[in-house]
Amino acid sequence: TEYKLVVVGAGGVGKSALTIQLIQNHFVDEYDPTIEDSYRKQVVIDGETCLLDILDTAGQEEYSAMRDQYMRTGEGFLCVFAINNTKSFEDIHQYREQIKRVKDSDDVPMVLVGNKCDLAARTVESRQAQDLARSYGIPYIETSAKTRQGVEDAFYTLVREIRQH
Score class of each variant (00 low, 15 high):
residue 137 G to A: 04
residue 17 A to W: 02
residue 132 L to K: 06
residue 107 D to P: 10
residue 52 L to Y: 09
residue 104 D to A: 12
residue 112 L to R: 01
residue 60 Q to R: 15
residue 24 Q to Y: 03
residue 17 A to I: 03
residue 83 I to M: 15
residue 31 Y to P: 03
residue 60 Q to E: 14
residue 36 E to G: 01
residue 145 A to W: 02
residue 25 N to L: 06
residue 156 Y to C: 13
residue 26 H to I: 13
residue 56 D to G: 01
residue 138 I to W: 06
residue 144 S to E: 14
residue 43 V to P: 06
residue 144 S to N: 15
residue 127 R to L: 10
residue 38 S to T: 12
residue 38 S to C: 07
residue 83 I to G: 14
residue 76 G to D: 01
residue 20 I to D: 01
residue 37 D to F: 00
residue 110 M to K: 02
residue 15 K to F: 01
residue 39 Y to I: 00
residue 125 E to H: 07
residue 11 G to S: 12
residue 133 A to R: 03
residue 141 I to R: 05
residue 159 V to I: 14
residue 128 Q to L: 10
residue 116 K to N: 15
residue 70 Y to Q: 08
residue 53 D to L: 02
residue 114 G to H: 02
residue 18 L to F: 14
residue 25 N to S: 12
residue 81 F to G: 04
residue 155 F to W: 12
residue 95 Y to N: 05
residue 43 V to C: 13
residue 69 Q to P: 10
residue 9 G to P: 00
residue 68 D to T: 07
residue 115 N to I: 03
residue 16 S to H: 00
residue 91 D to K: 15
residue 63 Y to T: 13
residue 6 V to A: 03
residue 101 R to L: 06
residue 139 P to R: 07
residue 54 I to P: 00
residue 45 I to R: 05
residue 75 E to H: 11
residue 156 Y to R: 14
residue 65 A to Y: 10
residue 94 Q to K: 15
residue 152 E to F: 15
residue 51 L to I: 15
residue 89 F to A: 08
residue 161 E to Q: 13
residue 65 A to Q: 13
residue 72 R to V: 08
residue 13 V to H: 09
residue 3 Y to D: 03
residue 150 G to H: 07
residue 107 D to R: 12
residue 1 T to Q: 07
residue 84 N to E: 14
residue 11 G to F: 06
residue 77 F to C: 03
residue 31 Y to I: 05
residue 70 Y to V: 15
residue 77 F to M: 04
residue 144 S to T: 14
residue 125 E to R: 06
residue 80 V to G: 02
residue 101 R to H: 08
residue 84 N to Q: 10
residue 34 T to Q: 00
residue 17 A to T: 05
residue 48 E to D: 11
residue 55 L to A: 05
residue 108 V to N: 02
residue 48 E to L: 05
residue 136 Y to M: 09
residue 17 A to H: 02
residue 134 R to L: 07
residue 1 T to A: 10
residue 128 Q to M: 09
residue 153 D to E: 12
residue 128 Q to A: 13
residue 111 V to Q: 02
residue 32 D to P: 00
residue 121 A to C: 10
residue 56 D to F: 00
residue 118 D to T: 03
residue 78 L to W: 03
residue 68 D to V: 04
residue 134 R to K: 13
residue 127 R to P: 06
residue 5 L to V: 11
residue 15 K to W: 00
residue 43 V to M: 10
residue 74 G to I: 14
residue 142 E to D: 06
residue 8 V to L: 10
residue 134 R to F: 06
residue 4 K to P: 05
residue 139 P to Y: 05
residue 73 T to F: 12
residue 162 I to P: 02
residue 49 T to S: 11
residue 110 M to L: 07
residue 134 R to W: 03
residue 163 R to L: 11
residue 116 K to W: 14
residue 6 V to K: 03
residue 99 I to M: 05
residue 26 H to M: 14
residue 44 V to F: 09
residue 104 D to Q: 14
residue 1 T to M: 07
residue 99 I to G: 01
residue 116 K to L: 15
residue 86 T to M: 12
residue 70 Y to N: 13
residue 43 V to T: 08
residue 144 S to P: 00
residue 19 T to K: 02
residue 34 T to V: 00
residue 48 E to V: 09
residue 29 D to Y: 06
residue 71 M to N: 10
residue 73 T to G: 13
residue 119 L to V: 14
residue 31 Y to G: 00
residue 135 S to C: 07
residue 24 Q to E: 01
residue 116 K to F: 15
residue 93 H to W: 12
residue 21 Q to H: 10
residue 92 I to Y: 06
residue 16 S to D: 01
residue 57 T to F: 05
residue 52 L to C: 11
residue 82 A to D: 15
residue 6 V to T: 04
residue 121 A to M: 09
residue 27 F to Q: 02
residue 119 L to K: 14
residue 59 G to Q: 03
residue 31 Y to R: 01
residue 124 V to A: 11
residue 96 R to S: 08
residue 63 Y to P: 14
residue 47 G to L: 06
residue 33 P to M: 03
residue 95 Y to G: 05
residue 20 I to T: 03
residue 3 Y to S: 07
residue 102 V to S: 08
residue 158 L to D: 00
residue 91 D to V: 14
residue 131 D to V: 05
residue 83 I to R: 08
residue 138 I to T: 04
residue 90 E to W: 07
residue 99 I to H: 02
residue 76 G to S: 03
residue 165 H to F: 12
residue 114 G to E: 03
residue 159 V to L: 13
residue 65 A to I: 15
residue 121 A to V: 08
residue 118 D to N: 04
residue 126 S to F: 09
residue 100 K to C: 10
residue 126 S to L: 08
residue 47 G to V: 06
residue 31 Y to C: 03
residue 157 T to N: 05
residue 54 I to A: 04
residue 102 V to D: 07
residue 118 D to S: 03
residue 50 C to Y: 12
residue 84 N to L: 06
residue 91 D to R: 15
residue 20 I to K: 01
residue 149 Q to C: 07
residue 164 Q to V: 04
residue 67 R to P: 15
residue 28 V to R: 03
residue 95 Y to A: 15
residue 132 L to Q: 05
residue 32 D to Y: 01
residue 91 D to Y: 12
residue 140 Y to T: 01
residue 4 K to G: 08
residue 18 L to I: 09
residue 9 G to Y: 00
residue 67 R to C: 14
residue 154 A to I: 15
residue 39 Y to N: 00
residue 155 F to C: 08
residue 153 D to Q: 08
residue 10 A to K: 10
residue 42 Q to L: 06
residue 53 D to R: 01
residue 160 R to T: 08
residue 49 T to F: 05
residue 120 A to E: 13
residue 12 G to I: 12
residue 43 V to A: 10
residue 43 V to I: 14
residue 22 L to E: 14
residue 145 A to K: 02
residue 147 T to N: 13
residue 39 Y to D: 00
residue 160 R to S: 10
residue 40 R to K: 02
residue 39 Y to G: 00
residue 49 T to K: 09
residue 121 A to I: 06
residue 149 Q to F: 10
residue 94 Q to M: 14
residue 161 E to A: 13
residue 35 I to H: 03
residue 165 H to D: 14
residue 144 S to C: 15
residue 13 V to R: 00
residue 144 S to R: 05
residue 28 V to M: 09
residue 58 A to Y: 02
residue 66 M to D: 13
residue 119 L to D: 15
residue 85 N to F: 03
residue 37 D to N: 01
residue 13 V to M: 14
residue 161 E to V: 09
residue 30 E to R: 02
residue 75 E to V: 13
residue 97 E to N: 12
residue 93 H to D: 13
residue 11 G to Y: 09
residue 3 Y to P: 06
residue 22 L to T: 14
residue 76 G to E: 02
residue 145 A to L: 03
residue 147 T to K: 09
residue 81 F to V: 09
residue 114 G to A: 10
residue 80 V to R: 01
residue 88 S to K: 05
residue 52 L to M: 11
residue 149 Q to A: 08
residue 94 Q to S: 13
residue 147 T to A: 10
residue 11 G to I: 13
residue 23 I to P: 01
residue 65 A to K: 15
residue 19 T to A: 13
residue 122 R to E: 13
residue 136 Y to W: 09
residue 130 Q to Y: 11
residue 125 E to Y: 08
residue 74 G to K: 05
residue 158 L to V: 06
residue 40 R to P: 00
residue 165 H to N: 11
residue 70 Y to G: 11
residue 60 Q to V: 15
residue 81 F to Q: 03
residue 130 Q to A: 09
residue 35 I to G: 00
residue 143 T to I: 15
residue 82 A to T: 13
